[in-house]
Nucleic acid binder design. Structure first.
Lengths: 357, 357
DNA sequence: ATGAAAGCGCTAACAT
DNA sequence: ATGTTAGCGCTTTCAT
């Protein structure tokens, strides 16, 4: 039986091949020079013994663990699991592995995770951060010159850390404008953001919106689109909901029952879309006859129901992959191109959008 | 500005505290004995310098990296992302981190991933393996005495590796029997398994079914339930579909159009459930009036549609968590309790099940 | 082309 | 209680 390869070291290989440790190392690394004879002997010995290089030892001396960390709110959330997939794909093809941590949006958990992962000497972090005023753990990373890329959300206090996210504003503009072009004038929006308290109302168009939360940015895009077409923003059509489908369901039920005059409804998030849809189904109002409906994220079920739901699709996989790619560039000290990346959303018109009647 | 904590070593702390390296190590590890004075000095020095222990170095000497690997087909798949969440939760609370790899059910990718992760000296593996005759990479792990737990699927060749999975047979029996108890006698099933070619037909009841694929086990449960109640298994009601929702959609459409006499339909997988549901919606047949319907996995959309779909819920999070717990026990050399674990499914009756009319 | 030796940061005997 | 020393498995000068 072959020896336990876990414990076969380069020393064993060297001995078996009848050469010195450094010769074996050279051959195995394919660096430096060695005679064909030595190469053959080493390779055969390694194979015979089932030698497996110890990446830990390698990392210790090289200073790189070839591992990156993904610190996300919840890998079971479809958005993040898709992003994680993109992330691992990109990492893998660069020869990196990925270590995951869930934060559940708890600042303390986030801090602790970052701490632990730093001790494991990951080469960099992709973090979808918890919103907080003083993200000390992340700041420390930056201070320690450990590469970091933010995913999906920026922290105001972390202005100089590159961000990879959806173009939230543009996405929302796209959806809203598509509705306007269909002829809609009274478009309702379901949002997690609170219009006035988050400065959306007074937000000057055109300047950097990175400091706002995604939800506020999406609301902003809606406002922009309306403004661009000379349409008023009516507060009664901005329906607020907490970040749960039950809350959205309740809010949309109320909107429908209120008898408000609107001909289209746009949901700014996957969870809100689910709740809104449930309210619509329960109310028994036919769409798009009663009003048009655009959901967020191309979730599987949106094509299962009838009519299939028109959605704004977010390139989740690409977001993760891009974040990883950017991080890897940083790790390789390619200092150029440290700006933010905003990927566009894709509008998928299906059966729930139509001209108003 | 504080020094880059990445490069602060225990030597620096020792020097700063005016003690020897080993004293510092003792204090930091909280092992051995040290005077209160030394303790204070070391802790303060560590804090002042922003010392971060190097887990890599620790792992090298201790032989444990405090990291486990999750080798899964696809983390973006809801089943596996939920399982991964359970896995990381359990690992985290034991002080372990998790490294993920996707295989896309490609044997070569799986092999390569296992190879790479082994080089990183993970302490163990949770693997949802790709089906293949000779899972050499996994066998090698076992041979090298690296702890492994299989998730969801067993490989025939890996009979002695512990498995954590759903009780596929029992789950299917549960759903089928619930239908029978409702009065249904002609129950159709949508399955990925092929009845005869996978030995389900001839499978003796009661013996270990672990070697069968999940899909075959679920089909077996259906057969068992029918048999138990003296109902015949009718081949025309066993509708086969590939593992895509389109295939299931097509198959169920055909079933409906065929005019076959059946009063209930049970889907044995999440993907098949989606396709079947789409076919039902398209055919415009009202359920449960036309026939009862039980789907697989408590997917979000199943509660969104109307009526909400009755489903067989799989404890995905618990599956992952249990796998991790078992693995950790193995890592700690708790050799007892190496048997398989089969978690029960939970039947959630909602609006699509009713007595036949 | 090859080998000897130092050292990455840490732990763990073993002295003192 | 504290310090010295010897590794863990590897890469990397530096000689030869």
């Amino acid at each position: 039986m072959a020896p336990r390869s876990q414990s076969v070291t380069i020393n064993d290989v060297a001995r078996e091949a009848g050469v010195s440790k450094s010769s074996a190392a050279r051959v195995l690394a394919g660096r430096g020079s060695s005679s064909p004879k030595t190469q053959k002997a080493v390779h055969e010995a390694a194979k015979r013994l089932g030698y497996r290089p110890n990446a830990l030892a390698k990392a210790m001396v090289s200073g790189s663990s070839k591992t990156i960390a993904a610190v996300l709110p919840d890998v079971a959330n479809p958005f993040f699991s898709a992003a994680l997939r993109g992330l691992t794909d990109a990492a893998r093809s660069a020869g990196f592995e990925v270590l995951v941590a869930n934060t559940d949006n708890d600042p303390d958990v986030e801090t602790r995770s970052i701490e632990l992962l730093t001790e494991k000497r990951v080469d960099g972090f992709v973090i979808a951060p918890v919103f907080q005023d003083e993200p000390d753990a992340i700041s420390r990373l930056v201070n320690d010159e450990i590469p970091v890329v933010l995913l999906d959300r920026r922290m105001p206090a972390l202005a100089d850390v590159p961000l990879v996210s959806l173009d939230h504003v543009g996405a929302s503009e796209l959806a809203t404008e598509s509705l306007i072009e269909l002829g809609h004038k009274r478009i309702a929006i379901v949002t997690e953001a609170v219009y006035d308290s988050q400065g959306v109302s007074g937000f000057p168009p055109g300047i950097d919106t990175g400091a706002l939360r995604p939800s506020a940015q999406r609301l902003l895009g809606y406002r922009n689109a309306l403004g661009k077409h000379g349409l008023p923003l009516e507060h009664d059509l901005v329906v607020h909901a907490e970040y749960t489908w039950r809350s959205a369901q309740k809010a949309v039920r109320r909107l429908i029952e209120s008898g408000q005059d609107f001909s289209a409804l746009f949901c700014t998030d996957a969870v809100l879309t689910a709740g809104a849809y449930k309210a619509i189904v329960e109310a028994g109002v036919p769409i798009p006859e009663t009003f048009s409906f655009i959901g967020f994220d191309d979730q599987e079920w949106t094509t299962l129901v009838s009519p299939a739901i028109s959605v704004l699709d977010q390139p989740r996989h690409a977001l993760g992959a891009t974040a990883a790619t950017r991080l890897l560039a940083q790790i390789r000290h390619i200092t150029a191109n440290q700006q933010d990346v905003r990927l566009p959303a894709n509008l998928i018109p299906r059966g729930t959008t139509a001209p108003p009647r």
